[in-house]
């Protein structure tokens, strides 16, 4: 399915990447140590868990829904994974993480399809429930990797570098590669996009909403399970309070990357770049010693600027849009067929 390469659609996919490149060009000027090996590795290592979940979330948003429970899922997968490690070592920890993620995704999907709870509310509810279960499991204190396990392969997942590239980032690359193939080269991927564009039309084409939603939410759950492996092996601990507010960060990254909240459109390249953009920006702000109050202001501002550009871009994509945009800055006249 070839899309026309208008400026607008190029921006769709590569816009955020362009901004990322710009930022990287500026970074060493503002923070001299930015491209030191340690710092670069740190940024890449840190972006992994956000990135992997964002990849899964891209599918969800492309299908027209979002999953607010990923923060709770991360907490629960982390706690269960650590319990698994204590019981059966690295292998069990890995299996436990992914299995828990899958289970959470299936629970979400069931609520949404069988009980017809709207995704926003269902995942809001499961966010509380998953965190609550994590709290119950850690009532005697957070689950932690014992210090003497520092040599174990599980810890190495988080700490090791391959050819100078941190393993968590390698995993993230792998996940994005697989996700890209899934989205662009399989029928399932096309179905996700079709469903997100128009659920009614998709139904007429024989796409089963139930199966699609199961797929999408299970995918998000599995991505959280995999992300857990990159997270818990760096932090070594978890309880119910892990990563409060994670879900908003993930969704922000996906939307920042260019995937539309309306559904039907997705760009994994955009998500990937947006995740790196957020990590790089955060790293620069911390290195500069910017007080956290101002860090918040900067990050919020970036979000707005990036999406303003996106909104303006949409306006320029349709024919005659330049004229409309100019007149639109003044008096607004109703225009049938305008995108917003």
């Amino acid at each position: 399915m070839k899309t026309s390469t208008s400026l607008g659609s190029l921006w769709d996919t590569w816009g955020i990447t362009a901004i990322l490149v710009l930022l990287l060009a500026v970074a060493p000027v503002l923070t001299p140590d930015f491209f030191s090996l340690d710092n670069a590795q740190s940024v890449l290592r840190e972006s992994a868990y956000l990135g992997i979940v964002a990849a899964g979330m891209t599918f969800a948003i492309a299908s027209g829904a979002f999953d607010l429970s990923v923060g709770g899922q991360l907490a629960l997968c982390s706690v269960v994974s650590l319990i698994g490690f204590a019981a059966g070592g690295t292998a069990l920890a890995i299996v436990a993480a992914v299995a828990t993620g899958l289970a959470c995704g299936l629970i979400n999907a069931s609520l949404i399809t069988r009980l017809s709870v709207p995704p926003f509310v269902a995942t809001l509810g499961t966010l509380f429930v998953f965190r609550g279960v994590s709290y119950i499991l850690t009532q005697d204190g957070p689950k932690t990797l014992p210090y003497d396990q520092i040599g174990s392969p599980f810890v190495k997942i988080g700490g090791l570098n391959v050819a100078g590239v941190p393993v968590p980032f390698v995993i993230m690359l792998g996940v994005f590669a697989a996700a890209w193939l899934l989205l662009r080269r399989t029928a399932t991927g096309r179905r996700v996009l079709a469903y997100g564009s128009s659920p009614e039309a998709a139904k007429f084409c024989g796409i089963s909403p139930t199966r699609l939603r199961f797929f999408v939410f299970a995918l998000v759950g599995v991505s959280v399970g995999i992300a857990t492996l990159t997270y818990i092996t760096r932090v070594w601990t978890a309880d119910g309070s892990a990563q409060d507010g994670f879900e908003l960060k993930v969704i922000a990254a996906v939307v920042l990357g260019g995937t539309s909240l309306k559904g039907g459109k997705a760009t994994l390249i955009g998500t990937f770049s947006a995740v790196l953009l957020i990590s790089v920006l955060n790293d620069m702000l911390v290195s500069e010693g910017v007080p956290s109050a101002y860090q918040r202001i900067v990050l919020g501002g970036v979000l707005i600027i990036a999406l303003t550009i996106d909104g303006l871009r949409t306006r320029f994509a349709a024919p005659g849009s330049l004229r409309r945009a100019v007149s639109g800055l003044g008096v607004r006249t109703p225009q049938p067929g305008s995108v917003r």
């Binding site: 710092n39 740190s42 760096r234 911390v286 860090q295």
Partner: peptide, 22 residues
């Protein structure tokens, strides 16, 4: 050299390790 963890365990680990790297 000051590092603010901003009530985030991920930031805590990353930032403290960064201090050591520095």
């Amino acid at each position: 050299k000051l590092h603010d963890e901003k009530s985030d365990e991920n930031e805590m680990v990353t930032g403290a390790q960064a201090l050591i790297d520095q």
